[in-house]
Amino acid sequence: MIVVAALVLGSFSAALIRIWRGPSGADRMMGAQLFGSSGAATVLVLAAMLEDWSLIDVALVFASLAAVTVVAFVERTERASMPQ
């Protein structure tokens, strides 16, 4: 179980590097998305490790709000580049 947590945290830091270096905005957004899903995975593993199953609700909120920021990002660039 601790191995699973360590691997998912490794995924966290990889996403951090991609956000930091990412040449374009799309890369940064992608990093944020990986952060969201690996955050949900971390919370799930924590729920099993701490035997506190109410943490599952947190992961549910993580999963259902994952797309909101991406949609906001796309809507921003779309409107800015639209010929009015």
Binding site: Q33, S37, D57, A67, V70, S81
Partner: peptide, 28 residues
Amino acid sequence: LKLVLIWIFVMIAGAISCHLVAREAYRQ
């Protein structure tokens, strides 16, 4: 049931944002 719901949400969010980001990158 909740866990399966989480998985479904993650798949929906992944599909939506993958499509949107790819389209945006293509348009730019």
